[in-house]
Amino acid sequence: MSAPLLSVEDLRVSFPTPTGRVEVVKGLSFDLGRERLGIVGESGSGKSMTGRAILRLVRAPGRVEARRLEFEGTEIQSLSERKMRDLRGARISMIMQDPKFSLNPVMTVGRQIAEALQAHERLDRRATRARVLEMLEAVRINEPERVAKMYPHEISGGMGQRVMIAMMLIPRPSLLIADEPTSALDVSVQAQVLDLIDELVRDHGMGLILISHDLNLVSRYCDRIMVMNAGRVVESCAAADLRHAEHPYTRGLLAAVPRMHETRDSLPVLDRSDWSGT
């Protein structure tokens, strides 16, 4: 593999509590090339905080420390806030969970996407408009001209998430972080949105970090998987090898999901004493 797109070494995120600082990410290290990495874990495992730390979106009193946090060869931690703003969106962008809360309700869809583009590139109005419509078409929205004039409340959840994707991809970033991009969507729409992200990531040769609690979903759309528990990576493997995962936590997560051909009388529940201390 060529030089990694993103290189993280010993990443730690902590928050103060009345009983001292608590680390929610405890020394995470990984390298990401132009590939698709899945981060899986339960609520509170630190998976979302990892995504936010990479974009330096963890606000005080939260604290991020890392021995190294390099993106395309640049140390992110030492960048000024202004440089960081240029990086966010343009080079690394992030798709959030729920389009309902992430889109501006009083701005048309077209204007919001244009705004994302104008923040990073100087283009005249006609060129901007052309790029916006082209992008809306790329995320498979029929009649992009009509949709561009609509407000977020007038479009469905799946469409909203596609608009979010359009907004995130229009500055042509090289790394996309998707934090539970489909958990607010219907199953039938989930597959469409993920296929779309997958296709765009491949076509543009981008890196993808897909954060989710759904192991099966991540194994379908990623090359490599990291399983997190309580701020640590407990297992890291190729997506194809997930079935042969060895760590009891990973196996527990896999077994807890009801299957389509379900015949079990009760679902195995995670016995949390199994791996504590490992």
């Binding site: 339960e42 609520s43 609690h213 759904d214 192991l215 527990g252 997560l253 807890a256 999901v257 009801p258 009388d265 009760s266 679902l267 195995p268 529940v269 995670l270």
Partner: peptide
């Protein structure tokens, strides 16, 4: 979460 879902589904059953 899936792991908690399993607990609640077992409980309901």
């Amino acid at each position: 979460d899936v792991s908690v879902q399993a607990e609640i589904l077992n409980l309901l059953k």
